Amino acid sequence: MRKLTVADLPDGGTPATLAAIGAGWGPVIRGGISRYDDAGHRTHAESDRHTHDVPEIFTIVQGSGHVEIDGARADTFRAGDLLIIPPGEDHHLVSDGDVPLVFTWMHLGSLDQA
């Protein structure tokens, strides 16, 4: 996992910047926005392994929490952070804050989907 902030992006996060973050991968093939109201909410069941065969980029819009990578607590995040999860890495977001956790998620496709 890599963590950046929106302030780290030279142009505020245009599609070209997002493509550079996921260098070697194609366009966004699916995505969405999620909201979790309760502190301690984990994005997937504790026993579930959650991986993808493509990179996933999270943008934290509101709230804070921590990331679990391969079953271990890895790093904290807050509004304005971007989390880049490489293919095959087991990942979960856990809300720690007093306000609802709101984030976007995007899966990048392969270059032949560009």
Rank of each mutant, 00 (worst) to 15 (best):
V54P: 00
G63F: 07
D37W: 12
R2T: 14
T43D: 05
I57P: 04
S34P: 11
G13P: 00
K3L: 13
V102P: 02
A7I: 11
L93Y: 06
G12T: 02
G80E: 05
I57E: 03
T59M: 10
D53M: 05
L4N: 09
S47V: 01
S110C: 12
S34H: 12
T43V: 09
A45T: 00
G26Q: 09
D37K: 13
H107R: 06
T17R: 05
Q113W: 11
G24I: 01
Q113S: 15
H92F: 06
T76H: 06
D53T: 11
G71Y: 10
K3T: 13
Y36H: 13
H50F: 05
Q113I: 06
D75S: 14
F77S: 02
G97T: 04
E89P: 07
L83Y: 08
H91Y: 15
I33T: 14
A7Q: 14
I33G: 05
D48S: 02
G26M: 07
M106P: 00
A114W: 05
G13M: 01
A19G: 06
H52Q: 02
R49I: 09
V99P: 12
H52N: 05
A39S: 13
G32F: 09
D98V: 13
R73Y: 12
H50W: 04
G22A: 15
R78P: 09
G40P: 01
R35G: 12
R35L: 14
W105D: 00
A72Y: 13
V94Q: 12
D75E: 13
V54D: 08
